[in-house]
Amino acid sequence: MANGSRQAAWEFFGSELKRRREDAGFTQVELGARVFVSGGYIGQFEQAIRKPQLDVAQRIDSLLRSDGFFERMWHKLIDDKRYAGYFAAVVELERTATKIAEFAPSLVPGLLQTAGYARAVMLAGNPFAADEYVEEKVSARRERARILDGTKVPVYWVILHEQVLRVPVGGPATMAEQLDHVIGLVRRRRVLVQVLPCSVGAYPLIGRMVQLMEFADAPPTAYTEAVYSGNLLDEPALVQRVQDAYDLLRAAALPPDASLSLIESASEDHRRCASTT
């Protein structure tokens, strides 16, 4: 679905929510209290500024007795089968974010991955998968990255743990290509990258992948990921705690210039290793 038609569909979702809410005699505040979000969030849903999470859409259906209408709309608009169910809403939010800040403790983030690197990651977790399945997942990941190629590119800030640079995912040649891709995006000013060196030792959010997103007309969100599960946070106090931890990571990481030099050095190390095998 193209971005324009997707936005129009979300506007329809919002207008239907407003109509059914008013028919049921609820204010935005009253509906929000019954589905465990604020009245302001209901207003943002109705204006197509913010997209509800699946459990919220289900609670709205139950309260308004809408026979699963909002859940079905949610699945049609967000639940892209190319992505894990817990991650599909994040992909939707990335498309409208004005700023994305990410911490990657073990892998290059999906928005920065080359096809070769993404393929190696997919095969590592799905060694018996058909080629068609793997290529569909790789294509979806590369499609996500298109938000860095347009004219309205979000401010994108990434902190990589140093081990991300050292582990030769896909082999040394693939890894060198991957790091060269990151270097190219940095030089084109599409992303600002810092490296958290191994010498730091313990650090905030240790071992946790984290993504923070900000929007022009909606509150910020935070996303964290665990084993085959993810958690999208939009409660202001929790998002602020994640932001505070991310700020501490920034303070502990190498400056951008030194980080770029380290990435270039790691790329050369992988390239030399590839040439000797």
Results as ranks from 00 to 15, higher is better:
R34K: 14
E268I: 05
L63D: 02
A57Y: 11
E16W: 00
K18M: 04
R6D: 09
R19F: 04
G184L: 05
L205C: 14
S5A: 14
I159A: 10
G170M: 01
S38P: 07
T174Q: 10
G184T: 11
A226L: 08
K51M: 12
P256H: 09
A24E: 03
Q243A: 14
A218Y: 09
A176I: 06
D67S: 14
V193Y: 00
F70Y: 11
A245Q: 15
A258K: 12
L31G: 04
L63G: 04
L165E: 00
P172H: 14
K137P: 00
L232F: 13
P255G: 13
R82A: 11
F13V: 07
M73S: 09
F128H: 13
F26Y: 15
V164I: 04
Y223C: 10
M1L: 13
N126W: 07
R6A: 12
A88K: 07
I100V: 15
F36S: 07
P219Q: 09
A216T: 11
W10F: 14
L112K: 07
A129W: 02
L238W: 03
P256L: 09
V227A: 11
M209Y: 14
A226Q: 13
E143K: 14
G150R: 12
L54V: 07
S275G: 15
F36A: 10
R65Y: 03
